[in-house]
């Protein structure tokens, strides 16, 4: 029966999509990511030491071989990684934009301050509205 693995995989993909659309980066996400990394390492070690275990889990979930289960898991994990990478790059580019904007505006303010000083020195009336 392949029902269980189908439910798990579809659920994983849907959650990935929700993650893409909804959430914003936060400290709890980072904690969850780190817990998952530690879990992945532990599961990896266990799977290496007892190779039969993976096949056993695969059978229980309705997948033919342990290697297949591994592949399916890898696909989902890859998607999650892509999404979280994309989000990181969006955040980074927004930061860059804000920074570049401040730079451009600061330059404009500086130019105007210099023009004001030059106007004062040449004895022209100070621009009103200050």
């Amino acid at each position: 029966m392949t029902l269980w693995i189908q439910i798990l995989l579809v659920l994983g993909l849907i959650l990935t999509a929700v993650y893409l659309v909804r959430s914003t980066p936060s400290a709890s996400h980072q904690a969850i990511r780190r817990i998952l990394v530690i879990l992945a390492v532990l599961v990896g070690v266990v799977a290496v030491i007892w190779p039969g275990l993976l096949s056993g889990i695969a059978h229980a979930l309705g997948v033919g071989r342990g290697a297949d289960l591994l592949l399916y898991g890898l696909v989902v994990v890859f998607l999650v990684e892509s999404v979280s990478n994309y989000k990181r790059s969006v955040t980074a580019s927004r930061t860059t934009s804000a920074l570049a904007r401040e730079l451009a505006l600061t330059e404009a303010r500086l130019e105007e301050a210099i023009a004001d000083v030059a106007a004062l020195k040449s004895g022209a009336p100070k621009p009103k509205g200050k």
């Binding site: 570049a100 904007r101 505006l105 330059e107 200050k130």
Partner: peptide, 28 residues
């Protein structure tokens, strides 16, 4: 025109925001 220059290409939305930020902080 009063020229403000982005140091790098950011996109039209970013340029619009920079212009709006500049204009709204001018007196009057």
């Amino acid at each position: 025109a009063r020229l403000i220059t982005h140091p790098i290409n950011l996109g039209q939305g970013a340029a619009l925001q920079t212009g709006i930020s500049y204009a709204r902080e001018r007196a009057g």
